[in-house]
Each structure stands twice: as C-alpha cells, then as structure tokens.
Computed example of a mutant assay.
Amino acid sequence: MTLQTDVFGEWTAEVLAVRSGRWQPERDRAFWQEKAAHYDAGQPPLPNTVAWLRERLTGAASLLDVGAGTGRLTLPLAGAVGRVTALDHSPDMLAVLRAKGPPAYLHLRQQELADALQDPTLPPHDAVLSAWSLAYLPDLRGALTGLLRLARRDLFLLEDDGVGSPHVTLRRQLAGQPRPTRASSLRRALHALGAEPEHLQIPEERELTFPDTAALLAQARLPLGAAEALAFLRPHLTPEGEGWRYRWTFDVHALHVPLGTRP
C-alpha cells in the first residue's frame, strides 16, 4: 500500500521554512534588484531546452512566460510564436529585458504572479511557460490551477531536482542538507489536480573557467583541504594554462501538460 502525502502542504511548509524569507514578495524583489544587472552573466545557455520548447510551440499563436526575468528563455522562444507576454514581479529584471530591445510583439507585464493568476485582464495564451518561478510561492495549488486555466493548449514547467554542479551537490551532502525535489513535487501536484504531465530530463552543459587553482577552490567553497577538493573536482577539470576549465552536465526537468488540440 502506497502512503499518500499532502504534496501541497509539504510544499507550503518547505517554502515558509526558507530562512531568506523570499516567499515575501518585497524580499524577493529586493533579491532580484541586487542580482538583475549581473544575472545573465552567471547563467548557462540552455540550447537543448530551448530546442525542445520551440519544437512543441509549433503552431502556437501566443506564449505567456511566467517569471520571465531578463528574457533568458523568452527571447530565444519569441520567434516561435506570434505574441508573447513576459510576466515578472521584478521591475529590475524586466528593465534588463527591456534594454535588450525585444520585438514589438513581446509585451512586458510587471505583476505578482499570485495577483496575475486572478486578474481577468490577463487573457489565456496558447502556451504557458513557468521556468523555475514557483519555488517561493506558498500556494502551489492556487498557482498550478491558475496556470492550467491560462494555458489553452500547453503548460510547460521547468525545474530541477537538486542535482546541479558537482561542488554544490557535494556541499549539500557534507552539510547533511536534503536534496531539493521540486520537480518531483510539481509532478505529484499536477497528478493530484488531474493533469497528466509528460516528464522529460533534458541534458545541458555548464562550463566555467578559472585563472588558477585558488580561484577554482574559492568558487567551489568545499569544506575540504585543497588537495582533497581538487581530487574531487578533477574528473570535471581540463587544464588551461595556469588555470582550469570546469565543465559538468546537468538535467533540466521539463513537465509538459498538453491541454488542447494541436493544428
């Protein structure tokens, strides 16, 4: 017999336990105010994920990107549809997107997601994308119900299950921290709402370069001696002059809920 647990209650408890308090909108906006100017430089490209999404957006007339931020996914997907709405509650992140000169058919909308989901002036779109944008929303049931209502044809959720860079994964293990399982929780939540998501793990690659070993170890911040930390990282390292090229692969968990008939 399988023990049934309350995925929505678990999600709320985990969000409210976050010490940064980013579930409070003003704190999350302050976080992004500090990060916005340098956000893009710290993010890897996601060519495989973009290709997967573009293929599934074929024939869609409109796209709503929830938590669009600086347009990391919005802009490479914009050419696949005729009308795009980029929704985010951070004016600073949207300012970065605006400075990139988006096409005229890309509409920027600054609004709290919880408010937008109840706002009759936000119309349904053929496709809705939520990429890493639900992590600090306590009301997961309300968020998913609203997103499903706004998606005429397809709902896409992108998340991870806590397996990213080797150094961060090891830091969590050594500190005894549980691995985040947001992608698994979203899948369970969608099932609880009667949706049947397709679940795909899309491999992507991240690469960082460091001028020397000291810079590499400073980035990794492993609670190990230098020799032990370097030995752990070695399978992912390629020497480059006096420094290193640090490369690893990770999976983007993509959940796709098909809702309507495709042309």
Rank of each mutant, 00 (worst) to 15 (best):
A61I: 05
R109L: 15
R172K: 14
T49N: 03
A215Q: 09
G9V: 09
T49K: 02
R27W: 07
A68E: 06
R149A: 12
P102A: 08
L75A: 11
A183T: 10
A41C: 10
L75C: 10
N48W: 05
P25I: 12
A41D: 15
L259W: 02
L186W: 08
D251Y: 14
G241M: 11
L217V: 14
D65H: 04
Q201V: 10
V163H: 10
Q111N: 06
R206Y: 11
A95W: 01
L53P: 00
A131G: 13
T74M: 07
P123Y: 06
E205K: 12
G194Y: 04
A13N: 01
A218H: 11
F250V: 09
M1E: 13
Q33P: 00
L208W: 02
P166I: 06
P235I: 03
A215C: 07
I202Y: 00
V128H: 01
H191C: 14
L134Y: 01
R149V: 03
A116Q: 10
L3V: 15
L174K: 05
P91T: 02
Y105F: 13
G71E: 13
S165E: 09
R153K: 07
L150F: 04
A229H: 10
L57E: 01
H191K: 11
L259A: 08
H38I: 09
T209C: 10
T181S: 14
S130V: 14
T74Y: 05
A226V: 08
V50Y: 00
L46P: 06
D115G: 04
R27G: 05
L147F: 04
A36V: 01
D139L: 07
E242F: 04
P166G: 05
V168R: 13
W23P: 01
W132E: 03
R72K: 06
A17M: 08
R153Q: 09
E204T: 06
